[in-house]
């Protein structure tokens, strides 16, 4: 397999043969199996939020933030589902990870599971593109090996969703057996699913499953682990990022014009050697190029005789 050739095809959104995906996924598993649940990452580094299959916007992200040749990246998960190019987006990140293993850290999001991808688009996309779901299976095998978090200079904790009442320390997260489908409850589930909110203490989501945590829980976690910031993704923010709890937590969102219709902007967060935070914002790729050719399919209002 020629990695450069595959990368070029991916950048153009072109078809990748099933065997190529298979060997890519296999290589990735071998690489990821040796990574810790919480990877150590040095500054400077750029933290990226949800991508959701928006390949062209992912390419913009790299372009606006220095590119993988010069910059270290942490991706906070949710590479797939919703957008039209889940597979290409995920494979692009896999290829970069293989090419520059020390420059890309991939954290698992709540969409990197078999169950969720069957409902929210990735599975259907693979079926459409290959006529069978083998490629989806290979990717799901990789999902099981993704990290649960990262720690930057021992001061900034990165995770997809948020905190869990079952893990007070980073060591407790390191002790989780992560190589499995995301369970319906427990610390691994919470890290990928929980949300910050204006609550006094650990609260149950009104939906009946999932935790909400507030400033008290964040302060306790920061203090207990001697860290400054929790960087997470998981929730859409119109401005691309949102700091909460006196700057103790930030939500980073990197899918501009989410689902091709929200009109939001996207951001990445660069952490420099002094742990200063610099946000780079970017907008969605235009759906058509200069001469009117569609770059990404648009969901036009279809005029119909509805009743």
């Amino acid at each position: 397999m020629n990695l450069d050739h595959t990368l070029e095809l991916l950048r153009q959104g072109k078809h990748i043969p099933e065997e190529t995906v298979y060997s890519l996924c296999l290589e990735l598993q071998e690489l990821l199996i040796n990574e810790a649940n919480v990877s150590y990452v040095d500054t400077p580094v750029t933290i990226c939020g949800d991508i959701h299959g928006q390949l062209h916007d992912l390419l913009t992200l790299f372009e606006k933030s220095g590119g993988v040749e010069k910059t270290r990246y942490i991706f906070l998960g949710d590479f797939v589902d919703r957008g039209f190019y889940s597979l290409e987006s995920f494979l692009l990140l896999l290829c970069y990870k293989l090419r520059y293993p020390d420059r890309i850290t991939l954290i698992r999001g709540n969409h990197e599971t078999r169950q969720i991808t069957k409902v929210y688009g990735f599975y259907d996309e693979v079926l459409r593109k290959y006529g069978n779901c083998n490629v989806w299976r290979y990717c799901c095998e990789v999902f099981d090996y993704l990290s649960l978090g990262a720690i930057i200079n021992n001061k900034i904790f990165c995770v997809h969703g948020g905190l869990s009442p079952d893990v007070d320390t980073l060591d407790a997260i390191r002790g989780i057996d992560r190589k499995q489908e995301v369970p319906h409850e427990g610390p691994m589930c919470d890290l990928l699913w929980s949300d910050p909110d204006d609550v006094e203490t650990w609260s149950l989501s009104p939906r009946g499953a999932g935790f909400l945590f507030g400033k008290n829980e964040v302060d306790k976690f920061l203090h207990g682990n001697d860290i400054e910031l929790i960087a997470r993704a998981h929730q859409l923010v119109m401005e691309g990022y949102k700091e909460m709890f006196d700057g103790g937590l930030v939500t980073v969102w990197s899918a501009p014009n989410y689902c091709y219709r929200c009109g939001n902007i996207a951001a990445v967060l660069e952490i420099d050697d002094q742990l200063q935070r610099n946000y780079t914002i970017f907008e969605a790729v235009q759906p058509q190029d200069g001469v009117g050719n569609a770059i990404i399919p648009t969901k036009k209002p279809q005029m119909d005789y509805f009743l």
Binding site: H184, L204, P206
Partner: peptide, 28 residues
């Protein structure tokens, strides 16, 4: 209305937590 995994989820919290299970902070 509760999501499908709600009862399993709450049962596991009952098992795990010594004190009271987590409560819903805001009802709507």
């Amino acid at each position: 209305v509760r999501v499908s995994c709600a009862s399993d989820w709450l049962r596991s919290k009952h098992r795990r937590c010594d004190g009271a299970p987590p409560q819903i902070a805001k009802q709507y």
